[in-house]
């Protein structure tokens, strides 16, 4: 390994000051991705500032039904926290369907939001990659891209965003709270993840030395029956081929409100606004769900091995909506089960 210095800090101000002062430094929380990336030379920080001692581990109920989650809280602790399980089960499910128990015991919420893509070419320093080295090209376009994105892609990058948690947070209009040398910021989760466009190396708006300190999820009563569906090749310890976070409010069989976001198929945690707009006011039927899914994937672009993800994305949306609205009511026009 390259020479790397390490220090451990106990308060937020020192953490920010230390990193801000050294352009080759970075924060180290659970380290479950950061250390791997350092070892394979994709991350090249020379100073790691350990923030695990920062007082940012709490999960707090906010007045009115929201929740605030500290950035250094562990995935496993947040998944089990009662306010999260009761108010936002999709968050708890997304966390529990991610990684493995050992990783969840170490990985932090802030680190989860900041995690890098699993694209094999991004992680292979010998391969061209516009995200890792701008201007070198994208090997995934014509390479092994079975896991790559079909939504939000550009001719520069088709890497999939790997986080399950972020999908749920985008669906819930969560806000990422940061603190940096320039003060405090509140960044809506959807804005936290830009599209790759011509600059796939710009993965978030967080400046050097700026620290994610918390995530706030605003109240959403219908989220108490929300869920997270994750489709993957094996039953555990794997990233999504497609996933959906969904919450629906019904009135007499008609959708009055809906939140839907997708993972595994897009370059960022993908808020499915087209699908949402099709669904609001529509009857909660499989036909409506299919129409919503078709609308959402209408502009999807595939690159060979990932062509299946367009149809898989549609079906994942339909299944997630069927599940959250209750299968019992779901009979299609021909009278057969969907």
């Amino acid at each position: 390994m390259r020479p790397v210095s390490y220090s451990r800090v106990a308060d937020v101000a020192t953490a920010i000051g230390t990193v801000a002062a050294d352009p080759d430094s970075t924060f180290l929380a659970g380290g479950t991705t950061e250390v791997d990336l350092q070892r394979i030379h994709v991350a090249r920080s020379k100073r790691l500032v350990d923030i695990n001692d920062l007082p940012l581990r709490q999960v707090e109920e906010l007045p009115g039904g929201g929740v605030r989650i500290g950035a250094v809280a562990r995935m496993s602790d947040v998944a089990q926290a009662l306010p999260v399980r009761r108010r936002f089960p999709m968050v708890s499910e997304a966390l529990l369907l991610g990684a493995s128990p050992q990783l969840r015991n170490m990985a932090s919420i802030g680190g989860n939001l900041m995690q890098r893509t699993r694209c094999g070419y991004f992680r292979d320093v010998a391969a061209p990659c516009n995200k890792r080295e701008p201007g070198t090209g994208c090997a995934a376009m014509t390479g092994v891209n079975r896991g790559h994105a079909v939504l939000g892609t550009s001719e520069y990058c088709i890497a999939t965003h790997p986080s399950d948690l972020a999908v749920a947070l985008v669906a819930l209009d969560a806000v990422v709270l940061t603190q940096g040398p320039a003060g405090h910021r509140q960044i809506p989760a959807d804005d936290f993840y830009p599209m790759p466009g011509e600059t796939p190396d710009r993965e978030h708006p967080v400046a050097h030395g700026e620290l994610v300190v918390a995530v706030e999820i605003p109240p959403l009563p219908m989220a108490s029956t929300s869920n997270y569906l994750k489709v993957r090749d094996r039953e555990s310890y794997e990233f999504a081929l497609a996933s959906a976070a969904v919450a629906v409010s019904l009135d007499a069989g008609v959708v009055t409100d809906v939140r839907l976001a997708l993972g595994g198929v897009a370059t960022k945690p993908w808020r499915a606004r087209r699908a949402e707009s099709v669904l609001v006011g529509a009857p909660a039927t499989v036909e409506s769900f299919r129409a919503a899914a078709d609308a959402e994937l209408a502009d999807a672009v595939s690159h060979g091995m990932n062509a299946y993800k367009i149809e898989l994305g549609r079906r994942t949306i339909v299944r997630a909506l069927r599940t959250v609205t209750g299968d019992a009511r779901m009979v299609s026009d021909d009278g057969n089960p969907p």
Binding site: G120, Y121, A126, A139, G143, V144, R234, Y237
Partner: peptide, 21 residues
């Protein structure tokens, strides 16, 4: 990878074997 001539999933995160689940 047909272009680089290298295995594209040379890790245990990308080469999947069954897990207990």
């Amino acid at each position: 990878d047909p272009h680089t001539g290298r295995w594209a999933n040379a890790s245990l995160a990308d080469y999947l074997v069954p897990v207990n689940a």
